[in-house]
Simulated scan of single mutants.
Amino acid sequence: MDKQQIARKVLERLKKRYQLKTALTWKNAWELLVATVLAAQCTDERVNKVTPVFFEKWPDPSKLANAEIEEVEKVIRSTGFFRNKARNLVNTAKILIEKYNGQVPKTMEELVSLPGVARKTANIVLGNAFGIQEGIAVDTHVKRLAFRIGLTKNTTPNKVEQDLMKIFPKKEWSNVNHLLVYLGREVCKARKPNCEKCPLNDICEKNI
């Protein structure tokens, strides 16, 4: 099988097993942007415990733009790197008010210009909040699984993303992230992949 055939089987099998949505809890683009920034170097489970308190205090950019950074730090402390995250989120809120009428922008260029927002975060926001398939969000799970399965020989996120974009249909780009993340958490873990229980066992390069 070539890589596109393998990609089709990956989608077919994992769609039967997992939900096609983020593990983060959110209601709008603003909430997804904040949650994704908080999720850097932190579990989605932990973020989902923090965001209800966060959005009760700061439900929109206008509220957060006027917040004291120290207060934000207290709320998000458990997500790690809380000082940088707090500063970035408050500054992002100010930019959204000043430049975008309080709305989260809908282009890659605008999103990655925001403090603390890299391409991965922008892809997640664009694909899930707006249905805009600009690229594939490559986190540690996606990078690891794509390499193990044999969908890429690269290990840097940008190059992995480019390889995956060539073999998966554009309409599925957001789903690729969801599906590989769920499989990475449940089965194909970094240290002890449970290959016997993996639905991709027979097409995975690691086992062929």
Rank of each mutant, 00 (worst) to 15 (best):
C204H: 11
I124T: 09
T107I: 11
V47M: 11
V187C: 03
F54S: 13
I136M: 02
D163Q: 14
L96P: 01
V125S: 00
L183D: 03
A67Y: 10
F130G: 10
L38N: 01
K106P: 10
M165A: 09
L11A: 04
G150E: 08
A86V: 03
L89E: 11
V47F: 08
T107D: 08
E45H: 04
D163S: 04
L11H: 02
K153L: 08
K192Y: 09
Q41A: 10
V10A: 03
A137Q: 02
R13C: 03
A86P: 00
R83L: 09
L11M: 09
E110L: 14
L114K: 04
G184Y: 09
N158P: 06
L89S: 12
D202A: 06
K27V: 13
D202V: 05
D139E: 05
P169F: 11
R13D: 02
C195V: 09
E172M: 14
K15S: 13
A93T: 08
V187G: 03
A23W: 08
R77S: 02
T36E: 03
Y18Q: 04
S113I: 06
T36V: 10
I69D: 01
E68W: 03
E161C: 03
P115D: 05
F54V: 09
E73F: 05
K49A: 14
L200G: 06
K49C: 08
K85Y: 04
R13G: 00
A7G: 04
V104R: 14
D163C: 09
V187F: 04
V125G: 00
L126R: 07
F54Q: 12
V181A: 02
R17P: 03
G150A: 07
T22C: 10
N194W: 05
P157G: 05
K3Q: 12
A118V: 14
E161W: 01
F147R: 14
R144E: 06
N88Q: 12
L151I: 12
L164E: 04
K206N: 12
Q19F: 01
E110S: 12
E56C: 11
T22Q: 02
R144W: 02
A118M: 09
K49N: 15
D60E: 01
V176D: 01
V160W: 07
L14S: 11
Q162R: 13
L89D: 02
N28F: 07
K171R: 15
S174Y: 13
L183G: 09
I69H: 01
I167A: 09
G116R: 15
R13F: 06
N175K: 05
T22W: 10
F82Y: 07
Q5G: 14
T92I: 06
P115G: 13
T36H: 11
S78R: 07
G150V: 04
V117D: 10
K3M: 04
K120A: 10
N201R: 15
C204K: 02
N177C: 08
I97H: 09
N28R: 07
K153T: 15
A146T: 13
K63F: 07
L151F: 13
E56I: 12
V181G: 01
A122K: 05
F168L: 06
N28E: 05
L183H: 07
A67Q: 13
L14V: 08
Q41V: 05
E134F: 00
K3N: 11
